[in-house]
Amino acid sequence: MTIGNEGDNPSVNKTVKVERNAGNIIIGNSPEYEISSAINELLKSLANKPFTLKKNRRRPSSETVVKIQHNNLKAKSHIIKQYLDHSSKVEEAYSEIDSLVTFGKDTILQNLNDLYFLALDAVEIDYLICDIDIAKVRENSEFILDFIIQRLKNTVFESKNTPAYKEHVELGVNVVVAHAFIECIIMENPADDS
């Protein structure tokens, strides 16, 4: 991307030339910022649930541990821990979301699944004409999860109904993505490979 002035005249508009872009370039206000998002309603619902810090930690199920190992996600275990600390709140928020947004839960889960396939496209893992290559998923697992988290945060921040506090967004996105992982909406299920 190049930005320049037409000569030295400060009254002339600046020009921007962009070649091959797949990310965000925001110049001025986007109409996307005027549209509400289902994920934000879920995050707001999560933020309104009471929370107390617990000293004793809940351990993941053996199925979850196997799935973490299967997808090579040990470096992202912190989001699973966050989910375990908040899992009952996530379930409550999902049960409420359909009363706030028509097909809200399905919309959010479908969006997460779509983001997973976008991430696979980004790392050039084929899924249309053959089974997903788990070795390639394992090799790119951290990028895939980071891709999903960042795209979801983009949706949150680019929507009209953004939650009031950054911490609610950070924690909320992490636990929603971890929930999608545990529920086999994103990443690969070891049971499917047997």
Rank of each mutant, 00 (worst) to 15 (best):
N29D: 10
E6H: 13
M187R: 04
P31Y: 10
V66C: 08
S36V: 11
E188W: 02
I148T: 05
K74R: 13
P190G: 03
N71M: 03
D133P: 02
V177D: 06
V123C: 05
K67Q: 15
L53Y: 11
A22L: 11
K81N: 13
F143Y: 11
F181D: 06
P60I: 08
E183P: 07
D8H: 09
F117V: 04
L43G: 00
R138Q: 15
E158L: 15
R58A: 13
D131W: 07
H78S: 14
N40W: 06
I39N: 01
Y127F: 07
E19F: 11
T64Y: 00
N56K: 15
K153T: 12
D133S: 02
E188F: 02
N72L: 02
A191N: 12
V12E: 15
K17P: 00
F117M: 00
K67R: 15
G7V: 08
N29P: 04
N9Q: 10
K44Y: 05
P190V: 07
S77E: 09
S88R: 06
V137P: 00
E142T: 13
A38D: 04
V90H: 04
K81M: 11
G4S: 15
T52P: 05
S95N: 14
A164D: 12
F143I: 04
V90S: 00
A93I: 04
I132Q: 03
V173F: 02
E170K: 03
P60C: 09
H179G: 00
L128T: 04
D192E: 10
R57V: 15
A180F: 06
I182R: 06
V12Y: 09
K44E: 12
I25T: 09
E6W: 10
H70I: 04
I149P: 01
D85V: 12
N29W: 08
K81L: 10
I39L: 03
I148F: 01
K74D: 09
P190S: 05
V66A: 09
L171H: 04
V12M: 12
G172W: 02
D98M: 05
Q110Y: 11
L152N: 02
P163K: 00
E32Y: 13
N161P: 06
D146M: 05
G104P: 01
T155P: 01
E96D: 14
N140S: 02
D85L: 08
A119M: 01
A191C: 09
A119I: 06
E91M: 11
F147S: 04
V101N: 01
L43D: 01
L112M: 11
Q82L: 11
N21V: 06
T2Y: 12
V173H: 01
K55I: 15
S45D: 07
V137Y: 04
L42K: 08
I149A: 07
L171Y: 05
E142C: 07
V18C: 04
K49G: 09
V65E: 10
I26Q: 14
K153H: 12
Y94W: 13
V175S: 02
R57N: 14
V137S: 00
K153L: 14
A178Y: 01
K136D: 11
I97H: 00
T52K: 13
I129P: 01
K105E: 08
E96A: 10
D98A: 06
S77W: 06
E63Q: 12
I144G: 00
A164P: 02
I27N: 03
